[in-house]
Design a binder for these strands. Structure first.
Length: 418
RNA sequence: CGGAGUGUGGUGCAACGGUAGCAUAUCUGCUUUGGGAGCAGACGAUUCGAGUUCAAAUCUCGGCACUCCGACCA
C-alpha cells in the first residue's frame, strides 16, 4: 500500500506511560493504540501483523484436524455454575455485567463450559469422536495488574482449541500432535530457538500441563532449562516430583526468565462430567468425553517477537509475520523518481510481493528513520542515483548490509525467502 | 489487593506560592532535498473536586487515571 494512504503516524518518542519495549515500539510505529491500562486497539499495520500470526496458527490447527468456530463472549451464569466457576471467590478475574432485567452475565475469560455444553448437541456416539474445535476469540480477564504492554492485557484475542476424545489413548495421541504443532507454530513465527516446551502445574485438572516458554527478560515466569533435553520446568513445579517426571537433575538446569506464549492442558472428564457431555460407546454404555484445551495468545506472541527482535532504531520483524515484504522508499520525490518507484511498486505487486511504498513528500532522513522503526525486512531506495545506475539499492533491516540487484533478482530473493 | 511514584499544549519536558516556558508535531510562506533541514509567522496546555491563601501548576484532603515493585494469574 501507499504510505500516504496510511492514517497511522509514527512518533519520535514513546508516551511516558509505557515502559515495556514492545508497547513503546508498537505505539511509536503506529501498530497499536492504548485505550487504557491493559487494553489495546490494533491499527492497520498492527492488524496485518496480528492476522499473519493468526493465519500461521490457523494453518497449523487445520493441519491437525481443527475445525474453526466462533463462540460468544457473553456468557450465561447457569453454565458456569455447573462447574463451580461462576463465583468470584473461585475465579477472581471475571468481568460481569447485567441485562436490563438484571440477569447476570459474564464476559468469557475462557470457553470450556460453553463449548462443552454446546457439544452435547453434536456428540452422541463414539462415532462422533474425536473432534477438535478452535477459535480466535476475545477473552476478558480482570487482571489485578495489567503490565508489560500487550503481554498481559485485560482484553485479548486468544486461539483456544478444545479436543474431545473417547479414550485416554486417543487423547494422549492428539495431545502429542498438538504439542508438535505448537512447536511448528513458534518456529514459523521465528521464535522457535528461544522457545522451550516447559513442564508446568496442571492445576486442578491433571498433574502437569505443558507451557511454551520463550526466553526474554520481559517475561514474568522463571523456568529451569535442560539444554541437553531441550526442555524446561516452570518454577512452580521445580520440586522432586517435577524433576522426576522430566527425568533431569537440578544441578544440570539453568534458570531463565521467560514468557508463556502457549499452554496445553489435559482436562480429563472435569467438564464433560459436570456438564453432561457423554457418548454411547461400542458396548452401549454411556461414557464422559475426555477433553483437552490448547491456548495461544497471538497478541502476546506479537509482543514477544518485538521484545526479541528490535534494536535502537526500531522493530526487526521476522519475514513470516512482517506487515510487508518490502519497504519501497522514494527519495527525494520528483517526476522521474515517482515514475520509477510507481512502476516498481506495480511490478512487485504483480509478482506477488507485498510492498509498503513510501510516496510521501518527506525528507530522506525522516523516511529512513520511519522505515527502521516500522521494521519491514527489506528496504529499497529509489533515487536519481539508483535510476542512473539501473540497479536497485536493497538493504536488509536485520543485517544492515546494502546490496545492488536488478528487479528480477529482487523478486527471486523474496520468493525464495517465502 | 499491599507498597512506591506520576498527572502541564497532540507528544516529550520546564516553571521558588506571584506573567505557564522550551522542544517536537501541526498550519502558512520562502528556501532546501540520501539519515528526523533553515528562516519568519500562527494554533494550542496545568486530571477532576473541595480546602488553605491577597494569590495555587506549585501547599492540604479526596476522587479519577497511569506507571513501577510485590501478591495474584486456565
Amino acid at each position: 500500500m501507499r504510505q500516504s494512504q496510511l492514517f497511522s503516524k509514527t512518533r519520535r518518542e514513546a508516551p511516558k506511560d509505557e515502559v515495556a519495549k514492545n508497547a513503546e515500539l508498537l505505539i511509536r510505529g503506529g501498530y497499536i493504540h492504548k485505550e487504557m491500562a491493559g487494553v489495546y486497539s490494533f491499527l492497520p499495520l498492527g492488524l496485518i501483523v496480528l492476522n499473519k500470526i493468526i493465519q500461521i496458527i490457523r494453518e497449523e490447527m487445520n493441519e491437525i484436524g481443527g475445525e474453526e468456530i466462533l463462540l460468544a463472549s457473553l456468557q450465561q451464569k447457569d453454565t458456569w455454575q455447573t462447574t463451580d466457576r461462576w463465583d468470584d471467590k473461585k475465579v477472581d478475574n471475571w468481568f460481569k455485567t447485567k441485562l436490563k432485567n438484571d440477569t447476570e452475565l459474564g464476559l468469557g475469560f475462557t470457553h470450556e463450559e460453553p463449548l462443552t455444553a454446546l457439544m452435547r448437541e453434536h456428540i452422541r456416539s463414539y462415532k462422533d469422536l474425536p473432534r477438535y474445535a478452535y477459535q480466535f476469540q476475545t477473552k476478558f480477564r480482570n487482571e489485578t495488574r495489567a503490565k508489560s504492554g500487550i503481554m498481559r492485557s485485560r482484553e485479548f484475542i486468544m486461539k483456544d482449541l478444545y479436543s474431545f476424545s473417547k479414550s485416554q489413548k486417543e487423547h494422549d495421541e492428539f495431545y502429542e500432535k498438538a504439542k508438535e504443532s505448537y512447536i511448528t507454530i513458534f518456529q514459523r513465527i521465528g521464535i522457535g530457538e528461544k522457545t522451550y516446551v516447559t513442564f508446568a502445574s496442571g492445576g486442578s485438572f491433571s498433574k502437569f500441563s505443558h507451557e511454551f516458554q520463550t526466553i526474554t527478560d520481559a517475561g514474568e515466569d522463571i523456568i529451569y532449562i535442560s539444554d541437553e533435553k531441550k526442555i524446561a520446568l516452570n518454577k512452580e513445579v521445580m520440586n522432586d516430583e517435577g524433576l522426576a517426571a522430566v527425568g533431569v537433575k537440578k544441578e544440570d538446569l539453568r534458570e531463565a526468565k521467560a514468557v508463556e506464549v502457549g499452554n496445553i492442558f489435559s482436562l480429563g472428564t472435569r467438564f464433560s462430567e459436570a456438564i453432561g457431555l457423554t457418548y454411547v460407546a461400542l458396548d452401549g454404555s454411556k461414557k464422559p468425553v475426555i477433553m483437552g484445551s490448547y491456548g495461544i495468545g497471538p497478541a502476546r506472541l506479537m509482543g514477544t517477537v518485538v521484545e526479541l527482535f528490535s534494536d535502537d532504531a526500531g522493530i526487526v520483524w521476522p519475514k513470516s509475520i512482517a506487515p510487508f515484504d518490502i519497504h519501497l522508499i522514494e527519495v527525494p520525490c520528483d517526476e522521474s523518481t515517482n515514475k520509477a518507484a510507481t512502476k516498481l511498486y506495480e511490478n512487485l505487486k504483480k509478482a506477488g510481493v507485498s510492498v509498503l511504498y513510501d510516496d510521501r513528500d518527506a525528507r530522506a532522513g525522516e523516511k529512513f528513520s520511519d522505515s527502521d522503526l516500522i521494521g519491514i525486512p527489506t528496504r529499497i531506495v529509489i533515487s536519481k542515483k539508483t535510476i542512473e545506475e539501473g540497479m536497485l539499492e536493497v538493504k536488509s533491516r536485520a543485517k544492515g548490509h546494502v546490496t545492488k540487484m536488478t528487479e528480477s533478482q529482487l523478486v527471486a530473493s523474496i520468493k525464495k525467502a517465502q
